[in-house]
């Protein structure tokens, strides 16, 4: 049997909903495991991405850490895939793009309802926010896109099955949703 395809996944400015949806392929995960193995992913807890065949990126880019992670994935993955609305167009986090970062932070940590010990978090461990949330194709080259909020388990299954079969991934109309 041929070597298994290496797959890495991550969630940037996302809600992990796409990852949860991936798990909706349910028992098909067992069949998938015959063909792929996970590298860096919340599923494995591997911290850094090694050379991979497929990188699945959930979420847009909202802070400096997102930029580094995204570049690490691009550098290591032969095929990079934008998974879900946030990776494709910034999604709901990008709705903050109409406000200044300072106003967003003040609203959350200073003026917000029920805030105690009001202060803007400034621990050096925390990545700095970018002034805008960006779709990932504005930072790196993206090879494929899986639309949806989230893309259904069937979308993940269809996409990965095509790649495993060595075919160009395509989605039938029934699986193509922007919502």
């Amino acid at each position: 049997m041929a070597d298994k395809l290496k797959v890495a996944t991550t969630s940037l400015a996302g809600c992990f909903g796409c990852h949860m949806s991936f798990l909706d392929i349910n028992e098909r995960m067992i069949e998938l495991a015959q063909h792929i193995e996970f590298d860096r992913s919340p599923i494995t807890d591997i911290e850094h991405c090694g050379p991979c065949d497929i990188g699945l990126i959930e979420g847009g880019v909202c802070n400096s850490d997102n930029v580094h992670v995204l570049r690490e994935f691009r550098k290591n993955c032969k095929v990079l895939v934008a998974v879900g609305a946030c990776a494709i167009n910034g999604g709901l986090p990008a709705m903050r793009n109409h406000f200044k970062v300072e106003d967003c932070l003040n609203e959350s940590y200073i003026d917000g309802l029920g805030v105690e010990n009001a202060q803007i978090p400034s621990d050096p461990e925390l990545p700095l926010l970018l002034d805008k949330v960006h779709p990932i194709h504005e930072i790196v080259k993206v090879d494929y896109y899986m639309p949806g909020c989230p893309p259904s388990g069937d979308v993940f299954w269809t996409f990965l099955s095509d790649i495993i079969a060595g075919e160009e991934p395509s989605l039938p109309y029934e699986l193509l949703h922007f919502d």
């Binding site: 934008a82 960006h134 993206v142 989605l171």
Partner: peptide
Amino acid sequence: NMHDNHFPHFFAN
């Protein structure tokens, strides 16, 4: 069969 928005977003107000 549009999967992405291709262009940078305006994020117009």
